[in-house]
């Protein structure tokens, strides 16, 4: 528990969370404002449309992934991993603490992103005299899905970052994979099984279309990805020489 607290303190004592939070808010303002201003009142009045408006909060899962990468690979980049291992020489415990801490921080970040997105969307919809349906079961399941997905993505980022140990390279490779690599899986009709799509199926939490796995299958596969990344990342932590 002490190590988890220390990892959370690390996240709180730099400006990383602040910048990532601002990035999420900026994206939410941009997307929600565009969506509400560009669509007709009749379209915006549909619950499905309003759900689409606030789904931008799911970007917090991607940001959470980056947070996880920085929390693990960033320690190697800044050279602080030596201090971390001096305090906690059993490295498996450090890896576990990072997984838990970033999963928690990612979930909090995602929840805050949802609260802001819902509030902003409600405000803008009301400003256009559109009846607000953001409290529907479907919309609330989306909140749960986004929070869960962000927690998983954050922990996944820790494992993946521990494995690569190069912060910038790890972020770039992750983004290239999500934007280019994973769509290419579509050639073999395997794209629903890519980690990005699997996380998306958790986000959708029961509202998915045919292109995503069901929530249950997506969650199980996401947890398998997490377990594999966690084990490989922990092994990489264990074997690393801090020179």
């Amino acid at each position: 528990m002490r190590l988890v607290s220390a990892e959370l303190l690390k996240l709180r004592t730099t400006r990383l969370l602040l910048w990532l939070g601002l990035l999420i808010l900026g994206l939410e303002v941009l997307v929600i404002a565009l969506h509400v201003s560009q669509n007709s009142v009749s379209e915006l009045a549909q619950a499905r449309s309003q759900r689409d408006v606030v789904s931008i909060a799911a970007v917090s899962a991607l940001i959470s992934l980056i947070l996880g990468i920085v929390a693990s690979a960033g320690e190697f980049a800044n050279g602080t991993i030596g201090h971390t291992f001096l305090v906690a020489p059993v490295r498996e415990r450090v890896a576990a603490a990072k997984l838990v801490a970033v999963a928690f921080a990612g979930a909090v970040l995602a929840f805050a992103a949802c609260v802001f997105a819902w509030a902003l969307a409600a405000l803008l919809l009301k400003a256009r005299s559109v009846p607000v349906h953001l409290g529907s079961g479907s919309s609330l399941r989306l909140v749960a899905g986004i929070v869960l997905a962000a927690a998983i993505a954050g922990a996944l980022g820790v494992g993946y970052g521990s494995l690569l140990r190069r912060q910038t390279a790890a972020i770039v490779v992750a983004l290239v994979w999500l934007l280019v690599g994973e769509p290419l899986l579509g050639i073999a009709s395997a794209d629903p099984y890519g980690p990005g799509r699997v996380i998306a199926s958790v986000v959708e939490a029961g509202n998915q279309g045919s292109e995503l796995l069901s929530f249950d299958r997506g969650l199980v596969l996401a947890l398998i990805y997490l377990a594999v990344a966690g084990v490989l990342g922990t092994l990489a932590f264990r074997r690393a020489d801090i020179t």
Binding site: S5, L9, T14, R15, T80, G82, H83, V87
Partner: peptide, 23 residues
């Protein structure tokens, strides 16, 4: 260890708080 092994954006006091919390 080496003097450069600190997160540049963290204050000195917070660096020690992290170590103290973990220990």
């Amino acid at each position: 260890l080496e003097a450069s092994s600190f997160h540049p954006a963290r204050s000195g006091r917070n660096h020690l708080r992290v170590v103290a919390t973990a220990a």
